[in-house]
Design a protein around this nucleic acid. Structure first.
Lengths: 140, 140
DNA sequence: TTCCTTGCAAATACTTTGCAGACTG
DNA sequence: CAGTCTGCAAAGTATTTGCAAGGAA
């Protein structure tokens, strides 16, 4: 169970484990697709768990600060999605432009490229976005 | 000069070349950084060219439909940027998290990866986002 | 003269902020 | 009990839409 380990992380930064944080964590833990704030909100509504959209945003931001959640900007989607990092290696996604299905890509080919970019641009690379879109098997 | 060639593209789709479209095109043509809608708006304001923000959005969308302009979602920026495709090969960008400087990356390593993804996921890949962020030489 | 395009106002979508009351430790 | 967290209202930012007047061909 993630919860007690996360409680400690929260306390270490002067924060608390709460009903709503538990609910968001539990939802992210059992869900396989990266969820937007409104996804989280309406999913919890359906489960009759009272939570405000604002609280969802605040919660995912806290979890992001603690390094527990990744914030994704999928290809031309216009909203952010969130997924638990817990036990997962760095990866990317592909999303169907028709039905919205999102599938994980279990590889990231950018380590070498990052080095090359740093050499060529003299930037220090801190992060990157790599997201694909296309048509899933059912929508082709 | 791009303008007459583009006029034809516009007419071919039942559209017209106008004062504001010329102004946006000319700005994109002479600018080196990808520009957001507000960038375009305020840049033209400074040049005393009257244009509404709404018209900027409509213009970049038309140019995108004609395939003349690329719409970019840089890493966690929360707004889109636009750049002319004219005579440029497909490429990506890196943006400084401090000063916002954007530099072109003149390579895209994703052709092979795209094939691999199509094999593994059975998606047809249509497009992708690949944007880096970090710290430019001055801001390190 | 046709009908596409623009500007203005307003609407919509996503996300953040302020504040008073509720809850955690 | 102290101080954090939540809900509600409101504000902020990015983008789109409706409509009547203006402009291109």
């Amino acid at each position: 169970m993630l919860e007690s380990a996360i409680s400690q992380g929260l306390r270490a930064t002067g924060r608390r484990m709460t009903r709503t944080r538990k609910a968001v964590l539990a939802l992210l833990e059992r869900t396989h697709q990266p969820l937007s704030a409104t996804d989280i909100y309406s999913q919890l509504q359906e489960e009759h768990i009272a939570i405000d959209l604002v609280t969802v945003y605040r919660t995912v931001n806290v979890l992001k600060e603690l390094g527990l959640v990744a914030q994704l900007d999928l290809h031309h989607e216009g909203q952010s999605r969130y997924e638990l990092k817990e036990g997962r290696t760095h990866h990317h996604h592909i999303r169907c432009q028709i039905c919205g299905k999102i599938v994980d890509l279990l590889l990231c080919p950018l380590k070498k490229l990052t080095k090359l970019i740093e050499e060529r641009t003299k930037f220090v690379v801190d992060d990157h976005t790599l997201e694909f879109s296309g048509f899933c098997p059912k929508c082709q």
